[in-house]
Simulated scan of single mutants.
Amino acid sequence: MSATDPFAGLSSFLAVAREGSFSAAAIRLGVSPAAVSQAVKVLEARLGTPLFLRTTRHVGLSEAGAALLARVGPAATEIAAAISDTVDMAGEPAGLLRITVPRIAVPLVVEPVVPALRRSHPRVAIEVSVDDAAVDLPARGFDAGIRIGELVDEDMIAVRLSRDIAWSVVASPDYLATHGHPHVPEDLVRHEAIRYRFPTSGTVYRWEFERDGRAQSFDPPGGIIVNDGALLASFARAGLGLAYAADITVEAELRDGRLVRVLERFSPTSPGLFLYFPSRAQTQPKLRAFIDVALEVLRRTGVRR
């Protein structure tokens, strides 16, 4: 290889690899798609191998591209963090904070915290990616993520954002007056369930229960399937069936009686929502600012007790 700048084209390569699209990468980098395409072509020519497998509808990594991303991605994230930290040391927290969150965290954490963060730290920009799937933070260029505690890798630093979650079967009083109350999980076969399909995997969630210390799961019948928790709760309030939900997401409805819990003695609990990040990221002032604001806001809203 010649004395060419070894970093030439890498920012374009990383953006395309992470976004899965040349046009999306161009938007992220603030350049034209043609410029991104040309930079990648030059890099591929310099390396002597294609880095992407392109079709009219899809851009995927080649074997060589995947290998390059596995090694360069974490290093690039570290370099970006180092530059951001250096900038932050000059004054108040600043820079782009990229976080990945599941849908359940959007109304509970993201919606109340982000406005407060922007008001108190206007130099901190934030990018929120909503994704229920597990995410490799360094490989995807995220500073931090939010997930239910049991899904956080042990090598990550985790900060509790919410109390533990009780998973409950809920329904409207009208539905229960018409169809009766289920008393054991097996009664679900005689009821109408509003079911949830995971957006990423496409699988339909099996309702989980605990009985005599043993875990059980059921796939109840139902004519409605959604992939959004807010819509799930809305249909339950409308009396269209039973729904399986985290108590923390339907707390207001349970409090004012629009929804009622059933099968409570079989309801399992799981650790609440946690912010997690690699140990090396904890020194970033922008991340520290997010944590401080989040803990204060979530105490006020009652999500964290």
Rank of each mutant, 00 (worst) to 15 (best):
D164R: 03
E251S: 14
V226T: 11
V250I: 15
R140K: 07
V152M: 01
A125I: 01
T249I: 05
P185T: 08
A238M: 13
G149H: 06
H183N: 11
F209A: 09
A238L: 14
Y244A: 00
L161P: 13
T200A: 15
R190G: 14
G141S: 06
E208P: 02
R140V: 02
A133E: 14
A171N: 13
P221D: 11
L242H: 01
P122Q: 05
A252R: 04
Y175N: 02
A171K: 00
A125C: 00
L231M: 10
P199V: 04
A125S: 03
P220D: 00
R190H: 14
N227A: 13
L242G: 09
Y175D: 09
E253P: 11
E154I: 08
G229D: 07
D174P: 01
V226M: 02
W167S: 12
P173A: 03
G213D: 05
F198T: 05
M156R: 10
V159P: 08
S129R: 04
H181K: 07
A215S: 09
A166M: 08
A125D: 15
D153S: 12
M156V: 03
T249C: 07
Y244M: 00
M156Q: 14
V250A: 08
A243S: 08
S162L: 08
A133T: 02
Q216T: 04
E210G: 01
G222D: 09
L254W: 02
G180N: 02
V128H: 07
S217M: 10
E154M: 05
G241F: 04
D136G: 06
D212M: 06
V152G: 12
S234T: 15
G202N: 02
R195K: 10
E154G: 12
P138Y: 06
L161Y: 11
P138H: 11
V204H: 00
V189F: 07
S201L: 01
I165V: 15
A139I: 14
S168E: 03
I225T: 10
H183K: 11
H179Q: 09
V128A: 04
T249K: 04
V250L: 04
Y244F: 00
R119G: 08
W207D: 10
Y196S: 09
Y244T: 01
R123K: 15
G180F: 06
D247W: 02
R255F: 01
V169T: 07
G239S: 11
I148P: 13
A233L: 15
P220R: 00
F142V: 05
H191Y: 14
V170M: 02
W167R: 14
I225K: 03
I225W: 01
Y196M: 12
L151F: 13
D136W: 00
E127M: 06
P122H: 10
T249D: 09
V170N: 10
P221N: 11
P185Q: 05
L161T: 09
F218Q: 01
A245P: 06
D174H: 09
L242W: 02
A243K: 03
I225Q: 03
A243L: 07
P199M: 08
P221H: 09
V135E: 12
R195Q: 06
A171C: 09
I225Y: 04
E192T: 12
L240M: 14
S172P: 10
E192H: 05
